[in-house]
Amino acid sequence: MPVQNDAPGLDQSGKTHNHWTRRSLLKKGGLWGLFSLLFGGASAVAATAVTEDSGILSDAIGAFFQNHYNRMTKDEVQEALARIERRAKRTYDVDIEVSNDPPQPGVVYGYALNISKCKGYRKCVDGCIEENNQGRDPQIAYIRVLELDAGSLELNRSDHYYDSETVPQPGKIYLPIQCMQCDNPPCVKACPVDATWKEPDGIVVTDYDWCIGSRACMTACPYSARQFNWTEPKIPAGELNPHTHLLGNRPREKGVVEKCTYCIQRARKNRQPACVEACPTGARIFGNLLDPKSEIRYILENKNVFRLKEDLGCEPKFWYYTD
């Protein structure tokens, strides 16, 4: 894979590699333009187009042979990042930045959700979609908010599609469900090609370039937390979030399974997940389970918490509590 991003003088913007194709081509195009003044003809356009195509081809070849995330060398990871950036540029004409922040030492993420505060607004659902670059049509949402009758937590009587004039409705409670980043994740066991695994900071991630789309993980998940790209995800270019992570919200392709990563692109930069920030009620608490002074630890130690389907032994790192 030729990576020409270190060509001098190309990156006026000070940004990284993702510009190289277009920029260098434009420069070449400019030189060709001088020639074309003398010789006429559309050779410049043709030359540009040909080189552009070969970029697509070499990217396709590179993507095809891309190795498993955990087996790639540092250089190969950089190439993979650059490829994704170039593809986003081609597809959406947006400069995105794909990072590969490693897990932070001494951190295991945990989540707590106060169901007496959740009012069913579904702000978290849309906040998540804006952050994580899910396909809009068909719509993929990592969070499901369930409406239940007060007095029971039986999921089989839940309403996923409640659409009342206002929420909260009297006599109802609301239970948002998303990936719980299980400590003993059945989805990881199910994957035939190790495309999904648990990171040292507890986040269950998917290598979207390795997934073969068998959907065994979706069958295995007791929380329906995984979604499949049934077709090429469509995102309006203006809505693409350019701050991405290789294992997180980078643009995905058709035919792969995707999931919530507690906003790995944010969490590893110390930011709170988008659902936490989107929630106006303060029902959502995110933090480091290994930090005894963290809010999440206070809740786990001082509130009456429960976990959904704890009996299945998946050890979810997502707790519900009430005031």
Partner: peptide, 9 residues
């Protein structure tokens, strides 16, 4: 399979 092109995995 969603990605038969990755069958080699």
């Amino acid at each position: 399979l969603g990605r038969p092109d990755r069958l080699w995995h």
